[in-house]
Amino acid sequence: MNVNLFLLIAFCIALLFILFLVTKLRRVRGQLSIIEEALEDIKSGNLNRRMLTKKNDMTRKICYGINDIAMNSQTQLIKQKQSEQAYKRLMTSISHDVKTPLASLVGYLEAIECKIVAGEEKDEYVHVAFEKADYLKHFVENLFEWVKLDSGEQIFHFEVLDLNELSRNIIVDWISVLENSNFDYVFDIPETEYLMRIDANAYSRILNNLLQNALIHSKGSKISFHIFENDLQAKITMTDNGKGISPDHLPHIFERMYQCDQSRSAGGNGLGLSIVKELVAAHKGTITVDSTPDRGTTFTLLLPKSL
């Protein structure tokens, strides 16, 4: 009697246990079929597919792992696509930036060639054509410089130099240009010596591009230039009081070929600031911009003393 009861209980427990295992098995099988389907989808190229899993699922870790792999591949694929697109955009804008000035340059030369103009007007045409050719020359030079920087082929010559002395030498050449363009200026460069490792050519390129930029685009009347130094780094700020840059454009101004003026009529080629950024990065420094529309723009350059 006792034995029978015991057997019955044991049987019931075993039955319950089997039932439990069967349901568990069915659950896992269900999950596996979901995983299988998702894997098939991922394999066929849908890297956005994720497997959702709940806290007590046995397959949880596998799902997390596969999701991670899909997500990482997706990120890489997108990066690759973006750089392809950027390259295409670059080619389109180059073709535009060269085509239009080149066409009008040819227009002037044709007019001279076909004797449509004579005398003083002809001289003026030659002058305009020359200016346009010069613009194209600069554009192509800039472009090559940028390509060289972007592909890491530029070789830098770092020397220990006095930043203050170097800055003064660069700025001196700008004074007459600024005066001719009716710009007021304030240059505040410490009298002391500040030695740091720097590539003189690259540094002058940085300052020249920033000043050139303010001169062409800011439409302001004043430029101030300050250098602040401490034991760790030099901070260089350049501020204009011009029209500023709207918040829509501001995050993009260091991108290659980005021009705030969509009609591209103001001159410039959208390369200056992206070159600056690359050159600053080569010095392990940073450049940031701050701008208030109608109040002006400040570029802040931080260069570490020791590379």
Binding site: T100, A103, S104, V106, G107, Y108, E110, A111, V128
Partner: peptide, 11 residues
């Protein structure tokens, strides 16, 4: 008929 000349005239 010629964009190069048109460009010059516009300018």
């Amino acid at each position: 008929s010629s964009t190069t000349q048109a460009a010059r005239i516009l300018e």
